[in-house]
Design a protein around this nucleic acid. Structure first.
Lengths: 246, 246
DNA sequence: CGGCAGATTGACCCTCATCAATCAAGGTGG
DNA sequence: CCACCTTGATTGATGAGGGTCAATCTGCCG
């Protein structure tokens, strides 16, 4: 699983020399904006970008801030299906459907670009490159979700947390920020919701990782101390660990 | 969660009067074949339709038989991401990518139609309706996978099994077969792999459902005795059950 | 008939959810 | 500025749910 939580971005489209902290990189969003304009819109923490069932009319490119995608069951349970940061595009799952399939909520104040889908669609009919790009983004979405399914279906709690941290680290690095020290934008409960765990489990395992010298945790600030060891967590079974110790 | 495992098919595209056992219905596959031709190909149980990493060149419409989609982690774990039956289309996740994202394996002897994607793609550039149809199918795939994520992330073993059986029943009904009696095409282990459970748990819970009078199980033959009660399993917590009993 | 894959069932125990208490950090109003 | 409240995080105790190991059983095919 290369990227359990992040839309895969072909490395050929990244410009390493431009990877300075905070500078925006070539991304799905840039690709779209090169084709159509969009309307900027400020959004505040807790606000909904769109809600499940609302009629699909636009994609949203994230300029600043971060978001969560949320799904609901009819019996009231909710699950987070992803966290999203600047440069990513939200609302893709509405393409081909009449309505948005879930909620998108801002985790902090931010800014998005609203890209009307009608325009995009009209353009895509005449521009095969854009059409291909849209397919590529949808396929990326499918890939990302499959990776998460794999995590939810076959990993243990420790492995899930390790995979989550590694992924966040990679995404930060890809955006030009430090891969070893970053702030979580979401609560423990939200992390648990994504990973299929309870918030107490998330908290306990973060503490355990700290005791083991893998990471440093101070509230929402994460420092990755031993990346290799963190990667090693994925794949290890506790049974094995105990038997080796015995 | 309307359809945890099945690609959603808008009801307007179903022809109720045609729902006779075994007759093929209007499906994604028919829609594609109305646009482009395809090459029929017989396939035997256990054969691979395509493998992860193989270069993406075609979609496959299932004419007969059933298939599983499988994903692998680099550390060797595998997980099934879906079972597919006649009328459904495989390989969608390759659209927009260069390679197939997983394996597709036949669960029994069957027949597929190979639809070269190059042709489809060329047509889609000139035919907005076809383009829209492809987007719709991709969105359906995303929707199906999100539902499975929800199941994996928030349901208990009993609920997962109940959801699985209900979904199979609906799909059988949609294809004109009995919704109350059908054969499983996959092993307990494969069911477990889809649902994030071990084969013993699958077996135990099927037995429990039988004792409770919800279903009848004889090897791979499933009879659904109390559909309403089976639906009721989803949402109930065992704690609640025990406290009510006490 | 024997062999084998798949299914069932039991015994045991590990992982994680649950319940609950405490703590830290911010924000608000006096 | 401090008292107060709220939200989020940590940590402990306990037990249920489901994984693991293992024995047995069934049906099927050569």
């Amino acid at each position: 699983m290369s990227n359990p939580f992040m839309r895969a971005v072909p490395s050929t489209r990244i410009h390493p020399q431009r990877m300075v902290a905070g500078e925006s990189l070539t991304s799905d969003l840039d690709t779209l904006l090169a084709c159509v304009g969009g309307t900027p819109r400020r959004i505040r923490r807790g606000e909904f970008l769109y809600r499940v069932g609302a009629s699909f009319h636009a994609l949203y490119g994230i300029r600043a801030g971060s978001f969560k995608s949320v799904l609901l069951t009819e019996d009231g349970r909710e699950q987070i299906t992803g966290f999203h940061m600047a440069g990513e595009v939200l609302g893709l799952e509405g393409i081909g459907a009449e309505t948005y399939a879930g909620d998108a909520v801002a985790l902090e104040d931010g800014e998005v670009i609203e890209i009307p889908f009608a325009e995009l669609d009209a353009l895509a009919c005449r521009d095969p490159a854009l059409q291909r790009e849209l397919f590529r983004m949808l396929a990326g979405e499918i890939h990302r979700e499959r990776s998460l399914m794999l995590l939810l279906g076959s990993m243990r709690a420790e492995e899930r947390l390790a995979a989550f941290l590694i992924n966040l680290s990679q995404r930060m690095a890809a955006r030009g920020f430090s891969a070893h020290r970053f702030m979580l934008r979401m609560t423990r409960e939200e992390i648990g919701s994504l990973l299929g765990l309870k918030l107490e489990t998330v908290s306990r395992i973060l503490s355990r990782f700290q005791v083991e010298g893998l990471i440093e945790v101070r509230n929402r600030e994460i420092g990755i101390v031993a990346m290799a060891a963190l990667r090693g967590v994925i794949g290890r079974t506790d049974l094995r660990r105990e038997r080796e110790a015995a």
